[in-house]
Design a protein around this nucleic acid. Structure first.
Lengths: 227, 227
DNA sequence: CAAAAAAGTCACCATGCGGTGACTTTTTCC
DNA sequence: GGAAAAAGTCACCGCATGGTGACTTTTTTG
């Protein structure tokens, strides 16, 4: 009682001692990891303040003290995880995919790599699904990242001298959409429109079809390669 | 008032006096309509027992008495609404779309009609979005209807002698997926991958691209039509 | 008209949620 | 060592939810 606070009226330098850290960092990490865990197992509606602290084993009040609420925690989480594949993962470390002279094959490979990258990230798929119904710190973050990512990818392709027609872009957007949708749906259904979305074979067939479809937009001076 | 319907107590067949009706039917209708209204305005998580009765202006206990809970009410609702476009809406009342000799154009028209049909049904789009995250009476119902619908459409196309290769089916599934995804996302974003998913012009461009892509799967005896 | 069954109303419960204030323990710094 | 600030704990609030029992009103039936 009678604990009169006592900010000295005269401390020279600003922000002298940050007065934080040690255990706190560990606790913050626990919270962030808990978000990932819930996102992985539970799903989307399981992610609440109470659920997160339960998972992390810490008190929920810390979520408010450290992150100023769930939104802040989600933002922090979004910065700490690689939702999105790197450009390297799509084009190869040395952009070897772009080295192929056949633009149709290039497009096919990009789609194949993209589909594989998405499918191998359950949390990303979860987020893509969440995006369909809600809009919060996490979905906004993933939107941001994706936009910058797409721009960067586009630049790389332009730099490589790939003949990018507007229709090429539209078709790529359509196939990207399809990949997102089928990755989402494949978690709860096995087939969609006769295609086996639960097996690699089904996805291989889709990729093959995509590649061939790209052929409709390039003059056939390069004969269709054998599959 | 006092318009006693007066079912004679002795008419041959069974089901003497069902002992129900009148106001009840009206109340049931109110509940069902309330589900639609909530689905239309609110969204997905707004749909609970309390919200429904509030919207309908009746007591929630009736949901349990009449429909045995929310699930039952959703099932009833799903039977009372045309989530899905009719085959006529896609192929034309006289299957005129199938009459076109150019299979590429047929495919394009089907996709165009399908996209328009989906986009004009906000509740269906809402349900498609819901499907991405949950599984309940409504989403199962819509899944069922869609499956039967796809089968029927396929039969119609076969009957019309359309050359349906396996790859055609895969490409159709991909474009259908893309339409679903972009219809869902267009509620909260304006552009996707450079395509304007919020305007008819954007969708027209997509349809055009789809039609042209189908051309990659048919021998080019029909020269590509001018855009 | 009167009795029975249905339709509709009201009050209530347990539970889980997001969020906050006040407390105790640990760490930091002089 | 000792004081202050931080980290961490505990109990609590208001609110909305899904769900149920008991009541009153209306309608149907004899």
């Amino acid at each position: 009682m009678s604990a009169t606070p006592h900010p000295h009226p005269e401390d020279g330098p600003i922000a002298k001692t940050p007065r934080r850290s040690k255990r706190r960092i560990a606790t913050e990490e626990k919270l962030i990891q808990a978000v990932g865990a819930l996102l992985r197992e539970g799903g989307v509606d399981a992610l609440g303040v109470n659920a997160v602290d339960r998972e992390a084993g810490v008190d929920k009040v810390l979520i408010y003290r450290y992150f100023d609420g769930l939104e802040g925690l989600l933002t922090r989480y979004s910065e700490s995880v690689d939702f999105w594949p790197s450009i390297d993962e799509i084009l190869g470390p040395d952009r070897e995919v772009l080295a192929d002279p056949d633009p149709q094959r290039v497009a096919g490979r990009i789609m194949a790599n993209y589909a594989r990258a998405i499918r191998s990230r359950p949390v990303t798929v979860q987020l893509l699904a969440w995006e369909c119904n809600e809009r919060n710190a996490l979905t906004i973050a993933v939107e941001d990242v994706r936009e910058r990512w797409a721009t960067q990818l586009n630049e790389e392709m332009l730099r490589a001298g790939l003949p990018l027609t507007p229709q090429f872009g539209v078709l790529a957007a359509l196939f990207t959409s399809a990949i997102h949708y089928l990755a989402i749906r494949s978690r709860s259904i096995q087939r969609f429109g006769g295609v086996d979305v639960g097996s690699d074979a089904g996805w291989d067939a889709m990729i093959e079809t995509m590649e061939r479809a790209f052929g409709a937009f390039y003059p056939p001076d390069t004969p269709s390669s054998p599959s």
